[in-house]
């Protein structure tokens, strides 16, 4: 391992949280690298310094101010969740996001001029196909016994409904 990699492992090494293999690699490297050994000393120094950081006593005037907090604030009893709180709940966020996307998608059809055109076009295709179907049925009534042609015509009409006129 290179010095940069070892350096990242040193704090973990000091916490004794490395795997056995990593520990062996770090120790072998430390024996041959004075710079990394010096870094290890720095990490030790940092831990020692931070753990021996003096704890200050609190100022009596601040303590008095903290004691008096209940006289300054009146506690509000825990309120029940309102409608707005329900919508603000993190768990409701995915459902709200999905609803927004759905509304956005629908708005393309209902509000956008092209969307309206798409709606009309779809309606036109359905009407055309229904018309074809009606004509076929009329033909069937006019030529009884000619079923293979009728079946093909019905199949053609249904295909038109699904895929549009060819």
């Amino acid at each position: 391992m290179k010095c940069a990699q070892i350096n990242k492992l040193l704090p973990v090494y000091l916490e004794n949280e490395l795997s056995w293999q990593e520990k062996m690699e770090v120790e072998a490297h430390l024996k041959t690298c004075a710079r990394c050994a010096a870094d290890l000393d720095n990490f030790k120094k940092i831990s020692l310094l931070l753990s021996s950081m003096p704890q200050l006593e609190i100022n009596p005037s601040l303590q008095a101010r903290l004691y008096s907090i209940p006289t300054q604030i009146k506690l509000q009893p825990s309120r029940k969740l309102g409608l707005l709180d329900f919508f603000l709940k993190p768990s409701a966020q995915p459902a709200l996001a999905a609803a927004v996307i759905l509304l956005l998608f629908l708005s393309f059809f209902t509000l956008h001029p092209d969307g309206r055109y798409l709606g009309y076009s779809l309606k036109g295709k359905i009407n055309f196909s229904l018309g074809q179907l009606e004509k076929t049925i009329a033909k069937v009534e006019g030529f009884p016994g000619y079923w293979p042609l009728v079946r093909r015509s019905i199949a053609h009409s249904l295909k038109n409904i699904v895929q549009g006129p060819s």
Binding site: L62, L66, I69, I73, L75, Q76
Partner: peptide, 16 residues
Amino acid sequence: EDLTQEIFMKIYTSLP
């Protein structure tokens, strides 16, 4: 000191 006072106010109001 200011932060400590604010934190304790928050603790007090959040106790419920």
